[in-house]
């Protein structure tokens, strides 16, 4: 399958205290990162639920990233470690239905890591671009045709 011209859509659930701030910092530092990423700000990645991740894929995105604070640095003590377990479970669900667990990833970073956010966003975009369109959206488009 050719990925020529394919531009993935990726949702990034980002924690207000770290990843979100890091994304802003990347912007003010005028660092480039792919426009494929749609950032959704959460107060904490502990807010993430399996349903959010599934609904995102069902709605047609090709990849999802969850970005929270470094482990041990959560403002709500354990939100990011809870998110980690939920992401792990969601990966299994996605794998079992043929969407693919590798389309979902969790990252941990601090608010000062603007450059790292840009790097993660670029790498994730690259990963999804290589994987091609999500089988869910691919089928949907064919049905529409």
């Amino acid at each position: 399958m050719s990925t020529n011209g394919f531009e993935p859509q990726i949702v990034a659930f980002c924690c207000h205290y770290c990843a979100s701030a890091a994304a802003d910092l990347a912007g003010s530092m005028r660092l480039r990162y792919p426009p494929n990423i749609l950032v959704i700000k959460l107060m904490c990645t502990g807010r993430i639920d399996l349903l959010h991740i599934l609904r995102a894929f069902e709605g047609g995105v090709d990849g999802v990233m969850v970005a929270g604070c470094l482990e041990g640095n959560c403002h709500f003590i354990s939100g990011n470690t809870q998110a980690k377990r939920r992401v792990q479970y969601a990966k299994q669900v996605l794998e079992s239905i043929g969407v693919g667990g590798e389309r979902l990833e969790m990252f941990n970073l601090s608010s000062s890591e603007g450059p790292r956010f840009a790097k993660i966003a670029t790498e994730m975009t690259e990963r999804i671009r290589n994987l091609g369109p999500s089988p869910v959206s691919r089928q949907k488009k064919e049905v529409v045709k």
């Binding site: 639920d49 399996l50 349903l51 599934l54 609904r55 894929f57 069902e58 669900v93 239905i97 043929g98 969407v99 089988p135 869910v136 089928q139 949907k140 049905v143």
Partner: peptide, 20 residues
Amino acid sequence: KEVGVMASTLRMAGAVSGQE
């Protein structure tokens, strides 16, 4: 919530395997 998760999962599984 589990109904939502189940529905979403089954819809995607159906879509991936080409079942309407």
